[in-house]
Design a protein around this nucleic acid. Structure first.
Length: 167
DNA sequence: AAAGAGATGGTCT
DNA sequence: GACCATCTCTTTT
């Protein structure tokens, strides 16, 4: 379960951490998934070992971050759609053009920008203790039990109810 | 408050 | 050459 874990990044000398509050799942049988048509150069990380990062460029402008799940060769990942910054707010806001908190990391492209993530971080291990990008379970309980709903922002398989949030 | 359009570039056919 | 797992700004109600 990825919800309520912390994404911790130390990039460009600026540490930013955030609590994951919304995610969206993709697997190889999903027409909307990048892995639907098999392995390519771009989606290679999704077929790699779980616990690694998959970053792709969206609409030529934004970066989106996923956590690889499932087993190696499975082509499954979970897109991080929204987080709540708990550390490094100054750096996050500077990268986001000094935007208000409610507009800071409430979208996959926005949070990647706030955390300084880009294509160069594709495939990174999120579980190694000395990594610059990490996924941390701090044992905190979710403020709300997880909600399930249809996915958004897609053109295929829109109704597959694989969006989860605890907002 | 809601709806529409343009930006922009890597990846795949 | 077409397609997008998005965001922001502008226009319209």
């Amino acid at each position: 379960m990825l919800l309520n874990k912390l994404l911790v990044c130390n990039l460009g000398g600026e540490a930013v951490a955030g609590r994951i509050i919304e995610v969206e799942a993709y697997d190889q049988d999903d027409p909307a998934s990048h892995t639907f048509r098999g392995r390519t150069e771009r989606n290679a990380a999704m077929f790699g070992p779980p616990g690694h990062l998959y970053v792709y460029l969206s609409y030529g402008i934004h970066h989106c971050a996923n956590v690889v799940v499932g087993g190696e060769g499975q082509g499954e990942a979970v897109l991080i759609r929204s987080v709540e910054v708990v550390e490094g707010l100054d750096a996050a806001r500077r990268r986001r053009g000094n935007r208000e908190l409610g507009d800071l990391t409430n979208g996959p492209g926005k949070l990647s920008q706030a955390f300084g993530l880009d294509l160069s971080h594709d495939g990174q291990d999120l579980c190694s203790s000395n990594g610059l990008i990490r996924l941390v379970d701090d044992g905190m309980l979710p403020p709300r039990s997880p909600q399930v709903g249809p996915r958004v922002g897609l053109t295929k398989a829109v109704d597959t109810p694989w969006r989860f949030s605890c907002r």
